[in-house]
Design a protein around this nucleic acid. Structure first.
Ligand SMILES: [Mn+2]
Ligand SMILES: [Mn+2]
Ligand SMILES: [Zn+2]
Ligand SMILES: [Zn+2]
Lengths: 141, 141
DNA sequence: ATTACAAATGAGAATGATTAGCATTAGCAT
DNA sequence: ATGCTAATGCTAATCATTCTCATTTGTAAT
């Protein structure tokens, strides 16, 4: 279950750009990254990867189940490592900080809401937009 | 509480394009409409309104609290009449049908989740993606 | 009804994120 | 080492949405 085997089992060649993108996410400095974020971080570390390639790789990784894609308020989508655990997100409207949470009751009730209305639930997206409070908010302070 | 007073109280002039857009939503044929949807419907009914104006008016109406904007899966955003009641949405991945629902427990737990983590909840977006079942699904059938 | 002026509109250009096309390069299996 | 296919990196193209700016309208005061 290392990078290489992940790629292989997804039918993806082990190329330099893919390894770099993957290790960026696994380094864990920031969990939620946009394509632009990834692109810039790679440039900054001297690894030149084309922006188009970043987009392609991110989408392939999503398809392969390595990454999960989210659409926070705003235009650009963000990716995070898929660690098997589903969770939802609270996003600070001021500083952009993201906190993850999981609430079994909410999950439960969503299933129920869908079922009661004759839907077969496929998945869902839940984002809470809020303001984080003084000490943690990078905006206030 | 008619169209005109709505516009006035929002500090918006009562113009032809605005009246037309508003009555489109109030006619209630379809609750959830994208800018493109609105534009095409107006064209179809012989009312020529520029696409840029449609976008402008929709956003002004949102600011004024007349409409609510949503971002269902996909790129384009949709608007619906604001009737005071908050609700969330189930979207059929096959036929695009949208059903609204409200679950007090879910709302409650979101507030709690935010509070427990030191956030002041501002709002949230919850979309359930699912497949609707035979009789209602415009896709199967 | 006319006038006057700010606000609104419409057409098209500009933007920003994401994708497509294509010539060139690099994994990987002989 | 060779060859072939998939992957990369540009650039150009899309798509939704916003911006610009010259022209038109709504409105409130003559
Ligand atoms: Mn997350
Ligand atoms: Mn709705
Ligand atoms: Zn914050
Ligand atoms: Zn359906």
């Amino acid at each position: 279950m290392n990078e290489l085997s992940h790629l292989k089992s997804a039918g993806l060649k082990s190329t330099l750009p893919r390894l770099k993108v993957l290790s960026l996410f696994e380094s864990g400095s920031e969990r939620h990254l946009s394509a632009e974020d990834v692109y810039k971080k790679l440039l900054a570390s001297g690894d030149d990867v084309g922006l188009a390639t970043v987009y392609r790789v991110l989408n392939q990784f999503e398809q392969a189940g390595l990454l999960v894609k989210h659409h926070f308020e705003g235009d650009k989508s963000v990716f995070e490592l898929n660690q098997g655990d589903h969770h939802d997100h609270i996003v600070c409207l001021q500083c952009g900080r993201v906190e993850e949470f999981y609430d079994a009751t909410i999950e439960q009730r969503q299933k129920k809401a869908a079922a009661e209305r004759g839907f077969e639930l496929h998945d869902h997206s839940l984002y809470i937009y809020a303001n984080c409070v003084k000490p943690k908010c990078q905006y206030r302070n």
